[in-house]
Amino acid sequence: MTAPDVPIAAGEDPYALKFPVIALVTSAGGLDALTGVLAPLPPELPAALLVVQHLQPDRPSELAGILAARTGLTVRAAVNDDRLIPGTVLVAPPARHLLVTSDARVGLIDAGALPPARPSADLLLATLAVTCGPRALAVVLTGKGTDAQAGIRAVVHCGGTVLAQDEASSQHFGMPGAAIGTTLVQNVLALPDIAEAIVGHVRAHQG
């Protein structure tokens, strides 16, 4: 027997996460783009941030340490079962996919030896969408390929918002261009304008 559907009461929030979560997804050229987004953000930003940049799976990454030196936010490499904390940036490590779970934590799973891109923006964004709903903000930054197309569809389906970096400020326009091609991106912005848009989203989705 299948369990009966439990109706959601009118006005009840069905999403597990009750504060905004910002996902920054990128590939080639990502270090400069991530720096441009994170450096202007206030350290007390009342939102959790997640970073996925495609990385070589067989090499250690210094991405979290470099970003920590370039922003007032707390930045660290994500570990399995890490709690999402406002004002903290969790960076996906090499060879692991980063997921958002229903109890305001993240999970890391092995990426395996073959594509999809590692870490996967699609997997992160899909799990963020179903746990965060309208509080989710996906930001697609410079990068090669088309990773994030499926993920942003999930974010928008669940009521979230998607931004993409414009071509003029992107070192590689594959990922942002593919995102824009879905027609689901709410705003296409130059890199210097993205931090302000993030702050606006957070203000609109607190509490």
Rank of each mutant, 00 (worst) to 15 (best):
A64C: 01
A48Y: 08
F19W: 13
D122G: 11
A178T: 05
A195G: 07
K18S: 12
A23P: 03
G174I: 06
D147K: 10
E12Q: 14
T101C: 12
P192L: 04
S169D: 08
M1Q: 13
A39F: 03
V91C: 03
L114H: 15
G159F: 00
T26G: 03
A78P: 00
V6I: 14
D193G: 10
K18H: 14
Q53K: 14
I66S: 12
G133H: 07
R135A: 02
G11N: 04
P86M: 08
L31K: 14
L24A: 07
R105K: 14
A190E: 13
R153W: 08
K18I: 00
L24F: 08
R153I: 09
V51M: 05
V130K: 11
A23F: 04
R135N: 09
L90G: 00
Y15F: 14
P4H: 01
A23R: 04
A16E: 09
L123F: 13
L31R: 10
A48F: 02
V140C: 11
T161R: 14
F173Y: 13
P192A: 03
D81I: 01
D122P: 06
R70G: 10
A117Y: 15
P116Y: 08
I194F: 10
A129P: 06
V37R: 09
L123G: 09
L24E: 09
V130N: 14
I198G: 03
A136G: 13
G11D: 06
P176D: 06
L49M: 10
N187A: 15
A129H: 03
A148W: 06
E62D: 15
L31P: 13
D103G: 06
P93D: 11
Q53N: 11
V21P: 09
L137P: 10
A168I: 02
Q171I: 09
G207F: 09
A48V: 00
A168E: 12
A68M: 02
D193W: 02
D32R: 15
P20D: 11
A178H: 08
D32Y: 08
Q186M: 10
H97G: 03
V91W: 02
L24H: 04
D193C: 04
P46F: 06
Q171W: 11
Q149T: 15
L55V: 08
H201L: 12
L123V: 15
T74R: 13
A138H: 10
P20F: 00
D81L: 03
A113T: 13
L34W: 05
A69S: 15
G72S: 04
A9P: 07
D193K: 12
E62L: 15
T182H: 08
V130W: 07
E196S: 14
V89I: 02
N80H: 14
P134H: 11
L90R: 01
R70K: 15
G133K: 04
P40L: 04
A138Y: 01
L24K: 07
I198V: 15
D103S: 08
A111I: 06
D110R: 14
A113H: 14
P20V: 04
